[in-house]
Design a protein around this nucleic acid. Sequence first.
DNA 1: ATGGTTATATAATATATGTTATATAGCAGT
DNA 2: ACTGCTATATAACATATATTATATAACCAT
Lengths: 184, 184
Amino acid sequence: MPKQRITKEMILDVAFKLAREKGGEHVVLKNIAAEIGCSVQPIYSYYDNMETLKETVFGAAMQFYNRFIYSRVDADGILESMARANVAFAKYETNLFKLLFLQKLNGLNSFDDIYEWMGDKQAATQLAEKLSLTENEIKEIYIMLIVFTHGVATMIATGGANISDEESASVLEKAYRAFVKAQT
Amino acid sequence: MPKQRITKEMILDVAFKLAREKGGEHVVLKNIAAEIGCSVQPIYSYYDNMETLKETVFGAAMQFYNRFIYSRVDADGILESMARANVAFAKYETNLFKLLFLQKLNGLNSFDDIYEWMGDKQAATQLAEKLSLTENEIKEIYIMLIVFTHGVATMIATGGANISDEESASVLEKAYRAFVKAQT
DNA sequence: ATGGTTATATAATATATGTTATATAGCAGT
DNA sequence: ACTGCTATATAACATATATTATATAACCAT
């Protein structure tokens, strides 16, 4: 049999690159094939249909997001750095941000779910000691800050992204301090 | 000439209803024609192309949004009621919320722009007296609350909308108090 | 070297959308 | 009643997408 010129990885890489650089709506058969320089058959030999390929791209985007955030988390100032990282993701990886957080539904049912879903429990415990607050109070602060951060991030992602990093960092800091102060 | 059976208003009404009840992506030629029970010609006789019709639908959605919000604004507690109204819009008019705030770009460049764009100046002046704060401090609170509200609204609109009105009202109230307290 | 397996290419098919061309038929004015 | 204008219908055309069918050609085993 002839050796394979196109691998499953090549297809996913190109599809992900399209999603990242042009937006999720550009992840279509002909664009992928054209970018690789092949026909549509290799794609169908690895993926049953476009649907499953797009799901794989979504998973890759989620993985990319997690690495992006964790690479920017700072041990002192966990919540603030995480908030800044999320806003940076919305600004510099706008297409992926939209794909992950503005299109797909993830079925949250309460704000506690948000904490479960996004929360980093270890960080919460550490911070409770540092600020000498209860874990429940930290949780409260965390949820409030996540919601606020998501507001900033969404506005940046949908608004054309011209708010400077300094300005968004400043507003995040204000929100964080306000939420901490409120627990007094 | 034969009397016209289909009016421009009928077309816009049906297109808007589709956007509201099924989502913006369902505003397509055949759906509109099918819903009215006519061919595609009347639509083209009133609108040059689908693009302009969709822009008109967007405008109608914006008008609907403004009425929705203003009908729920309460004279005492302007900011809180406006925040709750925005979250209610995201929950009960999810399709329109997505159309207006999660898809189109509106080109904001700074958070001051947000204030200019969304802000109700009169409310700000009144509130400044009531809380005996400067207008700049009110502006600060306003911007922070708008961002927070947008975070809640977006999470509800994209997350499947099962957070109760009480829970979201409670979290909005907390945020408002935190932002007011921070100006002390 | 030859034949068979299979990776890939080419091309056909299906569906959804928008747009335009042609046909029909209802009403106003004479 | 006839003529002509025009609102609407029917149908053709164009494009974009996914999917499937058929053809080709490269490589391994014999």
